[in-house]
C-alpha cells in the first residue's frame, strides 16, 4: 500500500512545482492575495473539513477515501470547484455536478486564500477570450476536448456513470482552470501541452459553442443523428402516415358532389 503512494508523492512534488513555476512565475496566489485566510479557515472548518480533513490532508474512513488531500490543490482548482458549485458536496459519495455556488465571491476568495496555505497548486489562469483565435481554438478543441465533451460541447458519457459535463455554462476562467488542473476525471493540460494563448483560443471557441451558428434551423440539441432519426420517424413518417390515411381514407360514404358523366 505504501509503495505506490510514496512513488506518487515523489513524482508529484517536483513535477507540479516545476509546472507551476513555468505557468505563473512566482505569483502562486492570484486571487488569494485579496482573501482573508482567517475567515477562509472558519468557512473551511464548517464546510469542507468533514471530507478534506482539518489540515487539508483528506479523510479516509473504513478504507474509503471520503475526500482527497488538498495539499496540491491550489487556487485554480479551488476556484473552479467553488464557483461551479461542485463543492461543497452534501454527501461525500455524490458525484460533483454544476450547481449554484454555495458561497459568495467574497467567501470564495477567503476560502482560496486559506486553501492556498495548505499547499501549492496551479494559480487561477488569466483567460482573455478576446485575444484568443477562434479558428485555432476550434482545432485545439477538436483535438483535445471533443473526445469527452463532444463536438458541440454537449458533454458525453464516461465509464461507470461518470460524465463529461456540458460546457455551455462554463466561464472563461473556469474553462482555463479545468484545462490546467484536470478536475474529476479530466486529464491535465499543462503549459507545455497548451500555451496560455492556446487556452485563450480554446475558451473562445467553447464560448462560441454556447450559441453556435445554427444556420440550418432548430438545433435539436446538437446531439447528432439520434434526434434526427427520432424526428424523421415521429414527424416525418408519422405525419405522412396521417396524410396517407386522409388520402386513402374511406371516402365512399361521402356524397358524390358531381355525378359521373
Amino acid at each position: 500500500m505504501i509503495r505506490p503512494r510514496l512513488l506518487r508523492l515523489v513524482m508529484l512534488v517536483p513535477l507540479v512545482a516545476a509546472g507551476l513555476y513555468l505557468v505563473t512565475g512566482t505569483s502562486t496566489a492570484r486571487g488569494a492575495e485579496h482573501g482573508d485566510t482567517g475567515r477562509g479557515r472558519e468557512l473551511y472548518l464548517t464546510g469542507c473539513s468533514s471530507c478534506h480533513g482539518i489540515h487539508g490532508k483528506g479523510v479516509e474512513a473504513n478504507g474509503e477515501q471520503r475526500g482527497p488531500s488538498l495539499e496540491h490543490a491550489g487556487p485554480a482548482i479551488t476556484n473552479y470547484m467553488l464557483t461551479t458549485g461542485r463543492m461543497p458536496l452534501a454527501n461525500s459519495e455524490d458525484r460533483p455536478v454544476r450547481k449554484d455556488p454555495a458561497y459568495d465571491t467574497e467567501q470564495i476568495r477567503d476560502l482560496i486564500a486559506y486553501v492556498s496555505t495548505l499547499g501549492e497548486g496551479p494559480a487561477i489562469p488569466d483567460v482573455d477570450i478576446t485575444t484568443g483565435d477562434l479558428a485555432a481554438g476550434g482545432e485545439l478543441y477538436r483535438a483535445n476536448c471533443q473526445p469527452c465533451h463532444s463536438a458541440s460541447g454537449a458533454g458525453g458519457a464516461l465509464s461507470y456513470g461518470r460524465a463529461a459535463p456540458q460546457l455551455s455554462k462554463a466561464t472563461p476562467t473556469q474553462i482555463g482552470s479545468a484545462i490546467r488542473t484536470g478536475p474529476g476525471q479530466m486529464p491535465v493540460f499543462g503549459p507545455d501541452t497548451l500555451s496560455s494563448h492556446e487556452v485563450d483560443s480554446i475558451a473562445r471557441y467553447v464560448k462560441y459553442l454556447e450559441h453556435p451558428d445554427d444556420r440550418g434551423g432548430v438545433s435539436l440539441g446538437r446531439l447528432g443523428p439520434i434526434p434526427e432519426g427520432f424526428l424523421i420517424w415521429v414527424l416525418g413518417v408519422g405525419l405522412l402516415i396521417v396524410i396517407c390515411t386522409w388520402i386513402g381514407g374511406r371516402t365512399r360514404n361521402r356524397r358524390e358532389v358531381e355525378p359521373q358523366p
Binding site: 471533443q146 463536438a151 458525453g156 463529461a164 440550418g216 434551423g217 438545433s219 435539436l220 434526427e228
Partner: peptide, 19 residues
C-alpha cells in the same frame, strides 16, 4: 430542422473523434 451541421464537426482527422 438543422441536420448534420458539419461545420460544428470539423474536417476529418483520423486521430480525432468526438464523443
Amino acid at each position: 430542422a438543422q441536420i448534420n451541421p458539419i461545420w460544428l464537426y470539423g474536417p476529418f482527422d483520423p486521430a480525432e473523434v468526438s464523443s
